[in-house]
Design a binder for these strands. Structure first.
Length: 933
RNA sequence: GCCCCGAUGGCGGAAUUGGUAGACGCGCCAGACUCAAAAUCUGGUAUUCGCAAGGAUGUGCAGGUUCGAUUCCUGUUCGGGGCACCA
């Protein structure tokens, strides 16, 4: 009876499936635990060995929690809308729904292969109309809501309308447009369009304008991803930034709460830090600089936001973002051409480029001046790409003596620099440190930064030229895409005014049955006219009796912002999830996913959760109580060395003797570093008669760690690994590679050690000739000590998600039990349970061999008993001056004085003390002894 | 450029709270079994000096704090992730 993993795993997979072992109920006496994986985007390439890393970790945790007596929700689904499927459709004409379905089937097969305990009856797919019906419904809730700052929560827009009708908006200032002011009389006189426009400035889902990458040649809007080196990835056509009407989510209204409630979350500190930085709260002042000449239109002032109001007397010039609405109005006729040329240049630049290029300074003078609010001096106004339209007010006051970029700008354009830091400013470099006093600054001179900031703000307020202001880097989230493969908006236009389709003007007999707005079939995925999405091409879909449909679709994060709620009640057709279900499962207890989502997806989910909470749909306002990141598994690429100009390949060790270039070769026919020459010859027709220069009769490849990707030929498919070693080995090996949160390269060779371990463990239970060899003998203290030490270690490790060291402990345990020749049920039955979360198939097999008839998942995790692991003496390392010299054993309850006497009396210690007098005797109980001389 | 993370033997990593650096596995070396090979088993394996006993050095680099630093602090180099329309 040998370890036949193929048979064992196939058997139990079938059993689990046939008996719905992993089906989870919303009714249970057990405490609940919700363990969630970030659901994958089902790409055409299938899963590689890097993807399941987090899934294995969460599966171990979920199984462990089940064995510990919890009712565990552990679901899986698919983030099925997205750009790649649409790209593929454009290239091949295949409908994204078809390719997505195919990809999901492949993913499902690959996932099943690994033996996860997902409750697949709860699967969700974001592209399923039954699912996106509720994504659309939530969008409508956001559209019909506004943020009430007095109550600090979202409320139905109907309440806002009631307020406007009674008192206008004087008590409800508009965050979308601060200049918007009206009283009740004016509100009631507003036309329908004016009313809707005003409300739009308040809605949590609203329309505004945003810059997109526009590609004239392709007639379409491109994603950042599709723009490479300033041209379109497809075709290499020129692209430029273009302002387009877009949907947004007013996430900025939640900035403060998103920031504050981070403190309640059990996330890693770096991750919270990243979210804090993304939200980017800063305190400062908003300062008005009046223009010296009134512009032809618009306001006669430029408003800037600064975090350093203390430096106000150091302002030597101002910089507007080139997109700033005032630029055209204030530019003098002489500067018009230069400004227009510069603006054209900036249109070709991405925000990333604009922020990261510091060496090359660019900009252009507008010819206009503004008056300094405190000194009344004329300040020249420039435009430059380093000022972004979306941050702050899109304009800055430049203080070259205190800011690096301002300094470089002033130097480059020869603008005179005012020194407000005395000798701390050298004239060579800006003084950007936040210590010291402000000088040469009128009434601020001699004050610290904090004092000067306060004083400056007070003065600006008195002068009516500024106010204290909290600013956020966070921007409202762009929520529309000019694409086909996404959720259609439940929105129609009547007289160019957008309405939710649940409003009476669209459906006067509104009911939930009007949702979802299904994605219609298209014949072509080509963009619509004027940068619109493909849906705009479907004339008879767009035009309805009630109005014109919105032709944009929602972005990828729409469906993923709330999917964790749908798993709780996936078949509900009248609600996104019943309140009973969400009240039972509540927050996700543990969420595992990739680092790359640390900001975007997590921030959006948090906002949606807060909005749903505010509107009374759920009872909690944070989605993920604990969050863990998994690192990437990198590929290990193999190289061959081809002699230039010849079809001849040199083994790695000899390549220096030839003129060669390296080529990537498929890792799957390289064993370690030794290449299978026959497989290589068959790989490509032109290699069929290649020649090889070998070392020691072998062809040795070069190796390098890179991202795992098809184009690098270093992709390893989990199916192949599972076929060769089994799912249990694969699961344990992935965990054994290292901590889940760090990136590490995949090495197929190393898996054999884990496989050997499982075979070795199996031999404790069964012998090839004799079969089942477990006996009923009473375990010895040694055996019990090993077992309980292991149980303890596994519990500790699983609770802190350190699965790599768990695997080591199992290895140590099996090595020691093998050495003792232990085949006792009293030891081996608990061991089989302990390893169940890691290697569920072999555990299930052993469990049934022990005579049990129900699944091992219904059993109980073995209890750790301290009495078996307690020791009463300890071998202390004894160090002299911090260097460990010898070991001495003492009882654990020994007194310090006794130990000191014994140690100082030891002849070896005396030798190392070299006759020097004792300075200090350090004894750390249970740890070590240090003799300081 | 900005934000976050990481760096320990030939390789993946361990050292959980500042207390014996290198657990466990891979690879490699030697041995057992075998006609041979595979599989399996046993032993060795940071570097360096030494026949050995034993000593010295050692956690990217340069400093600092401490009786004691892989662990804390400052600076620095290199690598990875994110930067708002890839998911």
């Amino acid at each position: 009876m040998e370890y036949n993993f193929k048979e064992i795993e196939a058997n139990w997979k079938k059993y689990w499936n046939d008996n719905h072992v992993y089906k989870v109920s919303n009714e249970s006496d057990r405490p609940k635990c919700y363990v969630l994986d970030m659901f994958p985007y089902p790409s055409g390439a299938g899963l590689h060995v890097g993807h399941p890393l987090g899934y294995i970790a969460s599966d171990i945790y979920a199984r462990y929690k089940r064995l510990k007596g919890f009712n565990v929700l552990h679901p899986m689904g698919f983030d099925a809308f997205g750009l790649p499927a649409e790209q593929y459709a454009i290239e091949t004409g295949q409908h994204p729904a078809v390719t997505t379905e195919k990809n999901i089937a492949r993913y499902r097969e690959q996932l099943d292969n690994i033996g996860f305990c997902y409750d697949w009856s709860r699967e969700v797919r974001t592209s399923d109309p039954k699912y996106y019906k509720w994504t659309q419904w939530i969008f409508l809730q956001l559209f019909h809501s506004w943020y009430d700052h007095r109550a600090d929560k979202a409320k139905p827009i109907s309440e806002l309308i009631a307020i406007f009708e009674k008192e206008g908006n004087k008590n409800m200032p508009c965050t979308g447009d601060e200049t918007l002011l009206f009283d009740a009389v004016r509100w009631n006189d507003f036309s329908e369009k004016e009313k809707r426009d005003a409300l739009m400035q308040y809605r949590l889902a609203y329309q505004g304008y945003a810059q997109v990458w526009w590609c004239e040649a392709l007639g379409t809007v491109l994603a950042n991803d599709e723009v490479v080196n300033g041209v379109s990835e497809r075709g290499g056509h020129p692209v430029e930034r273009k302002n387009m009407r877009q949907w947004f989510l007013r996430i900025t209204e939640y900035a403060e709460r998103l920031l504050a409630s981070l403190d309640t979350l059990d996330w890693t500190e770096p991750m919270k830090e990243m979210q804090r930085n993304w939200i980017g709260r800063s305190i400062g002042a908003e300062v008005r600089f009046n223009l010296t000449l009134a512009p032809s239109k618009g306001e006669g002032a430029i408003t800037v936001f600064t975090t350093r109001p203390d430096t106000i007397f150091g302002v030597d010039f101002m910089v507007l973002a080139p997109e700033h609405e005032l630029v055209d109005d204030i530019t003098t006729p002489e500067q018009k051409e230069a400004i227009n040329n510069y603006k054209t240049y900036v249109k070709s630049r991405s925000e990333r480029e604009r922020m990261s290029e510091v060496k090359q300074v660019t900009g252009c003078f507008t010819g206009a001046y503004a008056r300094h609010p405190l000194t009344n001096k004329d300040i020249p106004i420039w435009i430059s790409e380093y000022v972004l339209a979306g941050y702050g007010t899109g304009a800055i006051m430049a203080v070259p003596s205190g800011d690096d970029r301002d300094h470089a700008f002033a130097k480059h354009f020869g603008i005179p620099i005012t020194n407000i830091f005395d000798d701390k400013y050298t004239g060579e470099e800006a003084y950007s440190a936040k210590t010291g006093t402000i000088e040469n600054s009128d009434f601020l001179s001699g004050m610290s930064i904090a004092e000067a900031s306060e004083a400056a703000i007070n003065e600006l307020v008195d002068e009516g030229a500024g106010k204290r202001k909290v600013n956020y880097k966070l921007r409202d989230a762009g929520f529309s895409r000019q694409r086909y493969w996404g959720e259609p908006f439940p929105v129609m236009y009547v007289d160019d005014i957008p309405y939710g389709i649940d409003e009476p003007i669209i459906h006067n007999d509104w009911h939930l049955g009007n949702l979802p707005v299904e994605l219609p079939h298209v014949d072509s995925y080509r963009p619509g006219p004027e940068g619109q999405g493909p849906l705009a091409n479907i004339e008879d879909w767009v035009t309805t009796e009630a109005g014109q449909r919105e032709t944009n679709t929602m972005p990828g994060y729409a469906g993923s912002s709330w999917y964790f709620l749908r798993y709780m009640d996936p078949y509900n057709d009248t609600e996104f999830a019943s309140r009973k279900a969400t009240d039972y499962w509540k927050q996700v207890d543990v969420y595992i996913g990739g680092n790359e989502h640390a900001v975007g997806h997590l921030l959006y989910s948090r906002m949606w959760t807060k909005a749903l909470y505010d509107l009374g749909h759920i009872g909690f306002d944070e989605p993920f109580k604990k969050m863990l990141n998994q690192g990437m598994i990198q590929g290990s690429t193999r190289f061959v060395y081809r002699v230039n100009g010849e079809n001849k390949f040199v083994s790695a060790g000899l390549r220096k003797q030839y003129d060669v270039h390296d080529l990537r070769v498929d890792v799957n026919f390289v064993d370690g570093l030794e290449m299978d020459i026959e497989a290589f010859k068959k790989w490509r027709p032109d290699y069929a008669d290649a020649e090889f220069i070998l070392e020691d009769g072998k062809y040795i490849c070069g190796a390098e760690v890179e991202k795992m990707s098809k184009s690098k030929y270093n992709v390893v498919n989990p199916d192949d690994i599972v076929a060769q070693y089994g799912a249990d080995t694969f699961r344990m090996y992935e965990m054994f590679l290292g901590p889940i949160d760090v990136s590490k390269p995949w090495d197929t060779k190393g898996i054999e050690g884990v496989h050997r371990f499982l075979k070795k463990m199996w031999r404790l239970y069964a012998d090839e000739q004799k079969g089942w060899i477990v006996n009923e003998e009473t375990p010895t203290n040694d055996e019990l000590r090993i077992l309980h030490k292991t149980i303890k270690k596994i519990e500790e490790d699983v609770e802190r998600f350190a699965f790599n060291t768990s695997v080591s402990q199992f290895m140590i345990c099996v090595n020691e039990l093998t050495a003792l020749g232990c085949h006792k049920r009293g030891i081996l039955e608990p061991l089989a349970l302990a390893i169940c979360p890691f290697a569920p198939h072999i555990a299930e097999e052993l469990w049934h061999q022990f005579g049990h008839t129900t699944s091992v998942i219904t059993a109980e995790f073995p209890k750790y008993d301290e009495q078996y692991t307690k020791e009463n003496s300890k071998k202390y390392p004894v160090a002299v001056n911090g260097k460990t010299r010898l070991e001495m054993e003492f009882p654990l309850d020994a007194q310090k004085a006794t130990i000191e006497q014994a140690v100082l009396g030891d002849e070896n210690v005396v030798k190392w003390m070299e006759g020097k007098p004792l300075k200090k005797f350090i004894f750390v109980e249970g740890k070590m002894i240090n003799v300081v001389v």
